[in-house]
Design a protein around this nucleic acid. Structure first.
Lengths: 345, 345
DNA sequence: ATGAAAGCGCTAACAT
DNA sequence: ATGTTAGCGCTTTCAT
């Protein structure tokens, strides 16, 4: 057997203890993760300083798997998202991380593009890699059962979705319908009769609540939204751009477009401009989400969305579950939406 | 309050063993993470099936911290990024995850907006939460020392940066200068003499290599790029949009703009359109990065960037380090850039 | 104010 | 082909 290069083992708590001339117990109390307060009542200042000096001297770093195994807790939270590339994800992650950090926890993000990956990521929590998860995956409606399974296995979860019911986990939803209806009323009041919809998926089978809301409200006005006016692109700026250009090239194009996302709507404005059309005169555009970019586009984008999106309560929902073993109740948090008419309509 | 949360304990390997009527060792071999091949030579099919049945029956799930502690390995990799919201991050994360998955590893993302957070995240690897890290943080130049420190502590790392030297870790850089110079030549050949630059930071102190390359090449043509032609916005679509509109409102605006990012360049095209200017006639625009969106804008965006960005070698660099304890050499991987002239210039 | 000792759940060297 | 056994590094009683 060839000589295995002796991997220098990193120092353990025992090394710190012997360097400082104290017991491992004392070192543990001095370093004690989130419960540092306990150490104060137990360890003298002189001892603590000696321990810290030893830590620095030998370059000790706690072994997290060992700590997690013993504590049966990680102080880490997973944020599961189906993509990264919109301003929304960045904002959400930043806000959640801030709250978690204040409670002594950290955040890791796992991208879950498929149901199998979502299953896998929740399995990671189940396996003790994190204490809980916040789930932000768009096509999660079909995953009600998956979430319930993990909830039964005592995985603390908060999901952000309008198409799922709390059942062992909390749900954060947006009260979108009134704002979307107001947007439709607004378009109709401005004389639009042929309104296209930019959808997240082109799949007519996939339920898209925003499309349903628009359809329903149009019906209320005696108007219909035909299937051939539903275009793909809400999820991708480039697809949206192409969709709108194709659409505007048709013989009798719609006079307005309602996009299920702001990024799609912004691409729509720009696609119209690129073909020499005037927004809102040749094409009126409404988006969803009210992202910051709405205000700086020209013309400014009318959008249905949360007015000042504050996602910190989402993190607090999860923290409540983490701090309360056998958290008793399911909660539903409703983030209010409004319609904000601007120059694009 | 009980010191240890009275969480109903989840089943362990011992429970599976007694249910299946075998020893814990056998269960361990059947479940053995990445080394499943070893199990084949040891466990009979009948036994394996009995074990798997027991696993399903009692809902067993491996305890990852315990496994990591024992194995001294996690099969997990951290991707550290300073932000999420551009198409680049999405693409990078997806490609890396694919390669890691094929080698039986998983990927978590940690957002590191500050040097302190980068330190903290690398500390997580050091603490045994992951086996290594891929670092994609723009302002990492000042962190050479930090990376060297962790490299000395045997943290396997690959960094993506043009302003850092490999030293105990690998560096992936882009050979940007020739492509950028070609872009400048192209603009000059088309008669542009007053060229603005859209920079990542507005801070004139922060070194921006792309700006330096543009400046240098302009000097070669006897032209200068004055400080008041450097505008902020490459990092943010909205800021870019505002910058260009302000710029075009000046008495004697530049006739071309070179953006350090494609997203900034796209916003520039759009800002020009919004003011009734024609691209490329009133304003020529060049971006950096060659993202997919370049091809679908109108006019299509000229861009200096990688032609078909393949980021999988980045993951392989790290895997080599993970698979080879005391990895001997530092490597530098150069991703070639080209200038791709399109309709925007 | 500090230490001794008993595991947390798992893996792997060493039996058999 | 399967079992025994000795820890991995840490936290937390309980004792002093």
């Amino acid at each position: 057997m060839p000589a295995t290069p002796a991997r220098r083992k990193s120092p353990t708590i025992a090394d710190v203890a012997s360097t400082a001339g104290v017991s491992a117990t004392t070192v543990s109390y001095v370093l004690g993760g989130r419960r540092g307060d306990l150490a104060a009542s137990r360890i003298s200042d002189a001892t603590r300083e000696r321990v810290m000096a030893a830590v620095d001297a030998i370059g000790y770093r706690v072994n997290e798997p060992a700590r997690s195994l013993r504590r049966n807790r990680t102080d880490r939270v997973l944020l599961l998202m189906d993509r990264l590339s919109s301003p929304y994800e960045q904002h959400l992650a930043g806000m959640i991380e801030g709250v978690l950090e204040a409670s002594g926890r950290s955040l890791s993000i796992v991208v879950c593009t498929t149901a199998a990956r979502l299953d896998n990521a929740l399995g990671m929590v189940r396996a003790g890699l994190a204490d809980g998860a916040i789930v932000q995956c768009r096509d999660i409606a079909g995953q009600q059962h998956l979430l319930e399974t993990y909830a039964r296995e005592r995985v603390p979860m908060v999901t952000i979705s309008n198409s799922i019911e709390p059942n062992g986990f909390d749900v954060v939803c947006s009260d979108e319908t009134p704002a979307i209806e107001e947007a439709v009323d607004h378009l109709v009041a401005r004389g639009h009769r042929s309104i296209a919809f930019l959808a997240h998926a082109h799949d007519p089978e996939a339920p898209e609540a925003r499309l349903a809301a628009v359809r329903h409200r149009l019906l209320h006005h005696g108007l219909t939204l035909a299937d051939d006016l539903v275009w793909p692109g809400a999820r991708d700026r480039t697809i949206a751009f192409a969709s709108i250009r194709t659409m505007l090239g048709l013989p009798d194009p719609p006079t307005a477009v309602f996009s299920a996302s702001d990024t799609g709507a912004i691409s729509a404005i720009w696609a119209a401009l690129s073909m020499g059309r005037q927004v809102p005169f040749d094409l009126a555009v409404v988006g969803c989400g009210n992202i910051d970019e709405c205000l700086v586009t020209v013309p400014a984008l009318s959008s249905a969305g949360p007015v000042q999106p504050d996602f910190t309560p989402i993190a607090r929902l999860l923290i409540d579950r983490l701090d309360t073993p056998d958290y008793p109740k399911d909660r539903r948090l409703v983030l209010p939406w409004e319609f904000l008419p601007r120059q694009s309509t």
